[in-house]
Design a protein around this nucleic acid. Structure first.
Lengths: 252, 252
DNA sequence: CGGGAGCTTGATGGACCTCAATCCCTGTGG
DNA sequence: CCACAGGGATTGAGGTCCATCAAGCTCCCG
């Protein structure tokens, strides 16, 4: 059944927010993601500085892209979740500017460069949907930069979980007020530019103020509104679907 | 003379690092940037949240893209310099995620959405060169994120000026060990996630250690090697030019 | 039972912010 | 010509946020 396929195709689900996909496009996406690879937790798929030229579509599990700095620390750039594409930029730059590693056991699809070009050529609308999704990811990096640069540890942490919450809802991986989040406090710290110890203290604060709890790999957001106000977070609005006419790449 | 044109066309100069441009492509670029607009210092060209759908190519002068945070601060994301394109992502997202403002008197070219699509359709190689440049900008945002998240104020500041130095050299706006940098300390602070006062102290340190001076709008890097080592900065290597065959978008 | 990984809490110190004052330069109007 | 205001740079003093060091906890697994 097609419905069953769609249920598991997080990428298609995400792109559907941007534009209604045709049957043809949908089945191409399915085929694109047919060669799945199991990856163990903690496996580094690309290493910074490497000349890898493949992208990955995450199917299940959690991962992170990060950079190591000379003095031993690391900065996590983003947490790809199912349906996200990683490494498109590295393909253009011919060399990866960051590492990419799984955080749980995961399933990924490796996509070689020619395939990406094929999408852009043969399925222009799909291509622009993917570019839209990529732009969204980049906008999140910018938001991340703003967080670390100008927000307190408390705001940063709250902001982080709220954003994660919205992203997971977009692909149907969060329901109600809670979601699974198999990240350790040390990992969260590496993302927020804080020490693991301080993340722990902030989490305690959030717990004691009954705003958010993070325990046993489950995040519960008890008062989304109040938390968003404290964090200066703007809820991700669902933009209207682009009409097929309008977004066609070649209008001329 | 064509040479004269090229001298002033910073965009063409930058893209030439990626791929050798044909006469046809070069003249298209010239035509694309023919409608120049004078902009006064401090003018805000796009405002965050706005539904603008145009990009800008900076011709001369300095600018910055930034985000304002609720508590009054602002975080500068990047400093576009001549030859840089701003706002491509906003076109895809339909709404700008950040503001864009001039820092000096400047000249820009406004590029509407249809024109961008025209480039991608009619000049695929040029299009991929532009995407390469855009990817490079995004990689710099990532580097910026890493700086703020995991580097000390001293490293951050040094890193910032070194990166600026390399970028300006790429378009021929820096020669020898110094370059013009018409930024106030407060502006630098907004970029680095520091207070203006602390930037001042770090600059004093850099001066006293005879590594770098920033005075009267001129940055002098006295010992690039030592500074790069202290900042954990990797010199931007000039990647080899992509052969025309290889980078053609439509191989099929 | 021992050991390791992750979470939790306390104590201390340092990096950086904030407030405040001074200095310099430039422009502006009397 | 000078007085004045304003913006930016500079420096000092004090305070806050967060990192670091150190220890104890729980849970899981061998």
């Amino acid at each position: 059944m097609n419905n069953v396929l769609q249920e598991n195709d997080f990428l298609a689900k995400k792109l559907s927010v941007y534009v209604q996909l045709t049957e043809h496009e949908r089945s191409f996406l399915t085929e694109l993601q047919s060669r799945r690879v199991q990856v163990a937790r903690g496996k580094e798929l690309t290493h910074q500085g490497e000349l890898g030229q493949a992208a990955y579509i995450l199917q299940s599990g959690w991962a992170c892209s990060f950079r190591l700095v000379p003095n031993g620390g690391r900065q996590i750039i983003a947490f790809p979740i199912p349906g996200d594409i990683v490494g498109l930029r590295s393909m253009l730059l011919r060399t990866s500017d960051h590492s990419f590693s799984t955080l749980t056991d995961a399933v990924v699809c490796r996509v070689e460069e020619p395939r990406v070009k094929q999408v852009l050529n043969e399925f222009p609308l799909l291509g622009s949907a993917i570019m839209w999704a990529t732009s969204r990811d980049e906008a999140m990096v910018v938001e991340h930069l703003v967080s670390i640069g100008r927000r307190s540890a408390f705001e940063r942490t709250a902001h982080f979980f709220l954003e994660l919450y919205d992203r997971l809802r977009l692909v149907g991986l969060a329901s109600g007020i809670q979601f699974a989040c198999p990240l350790g406090q040390a990992v969260v710290a590496d993302a927020l530019g804080l020490s693991a110890i301080h993340v722990n203290r902030v989490l305690r604060q959030l717990r004691e103020r009954r705003l958010l709890t993070f325990h046993e790999g489950v995040v519960s957001i008890h008062r989304p509104g109040e938390l968003a106000a404290l964090a200066g977070y703007e809820i991700l609005e669902d933009r209207p679907i682009v009409s097929r006419e309008r977004s066609r790449v070649a209008p001329a």
